[in-house]
Design a binder for these strands. Structure first.
Length: 872
RNA sequence: GCCCCCGUGGCGGAAUUGGUAGACGCGCCUGACUCAAAAUCAGGUUUCCUCACGGAAGUGUUGGUUCGAGUCCGACCGGGGGCACCA
């Protein structure tokens, strides 16, 4: 990579960028102070994990946020734009094991490095509010909130089958298992039965779902993903009386009622079997005396949860010595099975099988030779030939073979059967959610300690508030796998706060997603020791007006944060429901991949393009295979270091490139050509401005009474750019904003003022507008030019320019003339010319006349200021 | 399997409510400057026919609605994302 240089390139970005960063810093330009007289605007980008160095994804994310922050500041808002560190997490522990460096040291060193890097980008951040989640002054409040939630019944311990990541040696929340694999390690998760801490996110399931509709400034896609994740289903619980089906006449045991959940109570008359989850308590009870069942349960457990395995896994059942009495058909009983496809975590862990109208039940019934009765038929079906023997019918239709439901539609039948079940006391209409409670225990060291103490006598006891924070011990070892806290010689041994007897600290730590579920609240009062935040400050600044981050957090982080806010509301810490008013999800930064002949991946700087198309390896000139553009990742080496780009081209160039061309929500391809293009434009701008400056009148020169045509044209261009660009920034159309700025730059560049004094004045006006408009995007260059224009103030503190409305509309418009909808030519008309005039002018347009070939128009359609269509 | 999004020049992408398709940038071509190169500046650049004027076709394919479709509707093809034995 080489820096393009030229004798004309006088703009020294190195010196300039450092100088203005220092000025902003010293003058605390971006410090946010509560001021009720001013409207506030809270801009936040998802805070980084301090992994070592910033990457291009950060550069893109923070550039976008900074454009908004600087723009809103110019619009008169009191802007809060803070930065912090999502500092707990496994990579720190992995580094400890691999590099023998303490996680704390590793983390804080990374923070220092990355802070320097972020500062070199010239971001308008209020660094006085910086926080790190691994700091006890942060997590003490988190521990306190957890105790409050616990007290309010929102946190609890439960033994359950959980997802275990065998590589990271910890449990994972449901949201952290992607296609049956751990979200970080990609290792297939294992099932383990453990007692773990959970947060009751399901308590808010309905609200988390219904409130999505009110998040108007969130991407539709994210709301949809959350809605699917919460997964609301309407249906019924139905109670089936169990009886002994073993054939033993003497058995008198009362097996009680089996509760099942179904979304299709309308198909109850088609029931042919019952199925229990292998993990269902009743299955376990029966297994005690049945080695065959024990074996079956063990086999089911072996099958992984990976998508591929589940897809191919055959339906397996184990016949239990039980029959279930049909709640609606007197005298009818069906066989009860344990079945591998029934999930314990959903509904009641038990189902009724209706093979006629469910694919899984159908497959099961075929395998075990169970009856398949149709109870729903298509409205137009011939009932004599209609059959579900080959395949289930799962669409809407008309109920048949179902007594009092016959003839009804599916939805009507559902309502009617639920009413009947409730009447008879054998069922109940219910709503079921797919969402599970949030499992927050992690068997790891580098996280926030869970403030609980286990006592043999008192059970699990909360750590008293006065003893917070429960600090992580520093003296831990990483020489063995497992949780260093658990094997620490002294840390966990404490007295029970309740009885004073011997107790043991909880050695699990919190899921780090808790840390990021309230940091935006902490930014409103970062130094406060007595509480997570000051209520007044919090109510002034929150909610976040614009949140920006990757779509990969569409469910995890965003859903957890929405939950945490509600949990805080439940314990009267806030009255707010939602933390993020506006959300924008930015695309990834991609780059081509390169492979050497031996198959190894190559870094972009290890290759060279020859003759435009051929690519060779720099070191030995061997050919290189160019792969498609993919997300920058260390494993494929297609990464470009932001530091190097900023060093070679400057922060403004990096920022400008990030905003150009690609719409911000889409993936961006990083190319060398694109960067040099952005760099050249910075140089060109500086040249255009300094050249024009030689001609323009001084700042504050009186406005001319009259403008020449050329001057008016440039004024129009400049003022239209203000209006267009303002709308573009509001709509996150940064690529279009950039295109407008290119156009205005060209207009300024081509304006030749020689002898035209009004144009000279306009040249200054246009330059001033231009410099203000690029301020949010390339702040250093803008500040430099602002000063060159003769201002002593800081551009960062200047208001946004407003367009003169009169200059936004043209006197004449170009109207297209069409013949049968095809363009023939154009005519110039005064704006808002009457329809008759437009029609008259169009009918004599030469290209149209030729196209008409003497035919008479049948009809003429006139769209004012746009089009005249002549139909023959 | 279910749900959702997207297909526009060589490339990234523009295109209010249906109303002049290809803004702007990159790349490429030609020219100017230069001993030369780089940089810079000027012009050109959807395809086909034509010296030109001009004309024809054209937004994944296909059918439809309309005076008029990149935009709306149907079917299909291709790419991407989410969920996934959720009863």
């Amino acid at each position: 990579m080489s820096t393009p240089t030229s004798p004309i390139a006088r703009y020294n970005f190195h010196e300039t960028e450092a100088r203005w960063q220092k000025v902003w810093d010293e003058r605390q330009t971006f410090r946010a102070v509560m001021d009720r007289a001013k409207p506030k605007y809270y801009v936040l980008e998802m805070f980084p994990y301090p992994s070592g160095r910033i990457h291009m994804g950060h550069v893109r994310n923070y550039t976008q946020g900074d454009v908004i922050a600087r723009y809103k500041r110019a619009r008169g808002f009191n802007v809060l734009h803070p930065m912090g560190w999502d500092a707990f997490g496994l990579p720190a522990e992995n580094a400890a094991m691999e590099k023998k460096v303490h996680p704390k040291k590793w983390t804080y060193e990374n923070i220092a490095t990355m802070k320097t890097q972020l500062k070199s980008m010239g971001l308008s951040l209020d660094w006085s509010r910086e926080l790190a989640t691994c700091d006890p002054s942060y997590y003490r409040h988190q521990q306190k909130m957890f105790l409050d939630f616990w007290n309010a019944g929102l946190a609890y311990r439960k033994e359950a089958w959980v997802n275990w990541d065998p590589v990271d040696n910890t449990v994972l929340a449901n949201e952290q298992v992607i296609e049956g694999k751990g979200w970080r390690t990609g290792a297939p998760v294992e099932r383990r039965k453990l007692t773990q801490w959970n947060l009751k996110i399901t308590h808010f399931a309905d609200e988390l779902l219904s409130r999505l509709d009110t998040l108007g400034r969130w991407p539709e896609k994210v709301r949809l993903m959350q809605a699917n994740w919460i997964g609301k289903s309407r249906g019924a619980r139905v109670f089936w009386q169990l009886t002994d089906g073993s054939g033993a006449a003497s058995s008198k045991k009362d097996w009680g009622k089996l509760e099942i959940f179904t979304t299709r109570p309308d198909t109850l008359y088609g029931a042919s079997f019952m199925a229990l989850s292998p993990e269902h308590p009743l299955t376990a009870e029966l297994a005690l005396k049945d080695p065959g069942l024990q074996h079956f349960i063990a086999e089911c457990r072996k099958t992984g949860t990976a998508a591929a395995e589940v897809e191919t896994a055959e339906k397996q059942g184990y016949k239990l010595p039980l029959l279930a009495k049909h709640p609606l058909i007197p005298g009818k009983t069906v066989q009860v099975y344990a079945a591998n496809f029934v999930l314990m975590e959903y509904g009641t862990g038990a189902i009724f099988g209706c093979p006629g109208h469910d694919e899984r039940d159908h497959e099961f019934a075929i395998k075990y030779g169970l009856p398949i009765l149709p109870v729903v038929a298509p409205a137009d079906a011939d009932l004599k030939s209609f059959s579900v023997a080959q395949a289930p019918f799962i669409e809407d239709g008309v109920i048949i073979n179902s007594d009092f439901l016959n003839g009804l539609g599916v939805e009507e039948a559902k309502a009617k059967v639920i009413a009947r079940l409730e009447e008879m006391g054998v069922g109940k209409g219910t709503t079921q959610y797919r969402l599970r409670d949030w499992l927050v225990s992690r068997q790891r060291y580098w996280g926030c300690p869970i403030p609980a103490i286990h006592c043999d006598k008192c059970g699990v006891v909360p750590v008293p508030a006065k003893d917070l924070p429960v600090k992580l011990p520093d003296d831990v070892t990483f020489d063995k796998p497992g949780n260093p806290l658990d094997r620490h010689p002294t840390w966990k041994h404490v007295d029970c706060p309740k009885c004073g007897g011997k107790g043991q600290r909880e050695t699990d730590t919190f899921d780090t997603f808790i840390d990021s579920s309230w940091y935006f609240d902490r930014f409103t009062s970062p130094g406060l020791e007595t509480a997570p935040f000051d209520r007044q400050e919090n109510e002034y600044w929150m909610p976040v007006d614009q949140y920006i981050g990757g779509v990969e957090h569409a469910i995890l982080h965003l859903l957890y944060s929405r939950f945490w806010t509600r949990a805080m509301r439940e314990v009267q810490m806030t009255s707010r429901d939602e933390p993020f008013d506006g959300l924008f999800t930015q695309g990834m930064v991609c780059h081509e991949t390169y492979r050497a002949t031996d198959g190894t991946w190559l870094m972009p700087e290890e290759i060279e393009r020859v003759d435009g198309s051929k690519v060779v390896r720099l070191s030995d000139r061997t050919p290189v295979e160019v792969g498609r553009s993919e997300k920058m990742s260390k494993s494929k080496k297609n990464v470009v270091d932001p530091d190097q780009i900023i060093r070679d081209y400057g922060a403004d160039t990096a920022r400008w490139f990030m905003l150009s061309d690609s719409p911000p929500e889409r993936d961006l391809e990083w190319t060398e050509a694109g960067v040099t293009g952005a760099w050249r434009f910075q140089q060109r701008l500086h040249r255009i401005a300094t050249t024009a400056l030689a001609e323009v009148p001084p700042a504050g020169a009186p406005k001319p009474a009259q403008f020449s045509d050329a001057a008016t044209a440039l004024r129009r261009a400049a003022h239209k750019t203000i209006a267009g660009l303002t709308a573009d920034i509001e709509a996150f159309h940064f690529n279009k904003a950039v295109a407008r700025l290119y156009e205005l730059a060209s207009s300024i560049d081509s304006a030749k003022a020689a002898g035209d004094d009004s144009l000279k004045w306009v040249l200054r006006e246009a330059l001033e507008i231009f410099v203000r408009l690029i301020g949010p995007m390339t702040p250093h260059l803008a500040e430099e030019l602002w000063q060159a224009l003769g201002h002593r103030s800081l551009l960062a503190e200047q208001p946004w320019p407003l367009p003169e409305d009169a200059l936004l509309v043209d006197d004449t418009v170009t109207v297209a003339v069409q013949l049968n909808g095809k363009l023939r030519g154009t005519i110039a008309l005064p704006k808002d010319a009457p329809k008759e005039a437009a029609e008259k002018a169009a009918l004599v347009q030469p290209d149209l006349v030729r196209g008409l070939e003497g035919r008479t128009p049948k009809r003429v359609i006139v769209v004012p200021n746009r089009i005249v269509n002549i139909v023959v």
